[in-house]
Amino acid sequence: MGLTGYLLLAAALFSLGVFGVVTRRNAIGVLASVELMANAVNLNLVAFSRHHAGPTGQVFALFSIALTVAEVVVGLALVLLLFRAKGDVRIELASELKD
C-alpha cells in the first residue's frame, strides 16, 4: 500500500480527533481525542519515513510519542485539579477565560 493510503488514513483519524475535541464534554474524553490527533501525526511521520531514506521520520515519531506522554501526564494533572475545584470534569465548567 502506498504512501497516499496511509496519509489519507491519518487524515481521517485526525479529523475524528478534531470532532472529539470540540464535542466531548468530559475533559478526559477531550484528552483521549487529542491522543487520536497525535497518533494520526505519528502515523504520518512513520509513513513518510518509509518512503524517504533515513531514520529522521521515525526519530521524530519517537520524540512525538514521548512529548505526548508528557502532555497526557500534565493534562491529567489539570483534570484532577479541575475535579478538585469544581467537583466534576465537564470541560465547560472551566470557563474562567471568559472573565
Partner: peptide
C-alpha cells in the same frame, strides 16, 4: 462570542 470554553476557542482556531 467569548464563551470562555476552551472547546469553542479550539473550534475557531481550527
Amino acid at each position: 462570542l467569548q464563551t470562555g470554553r476552551a472547546q469553542d476557542y479550539v473550534y475557531v482556531l481550527v
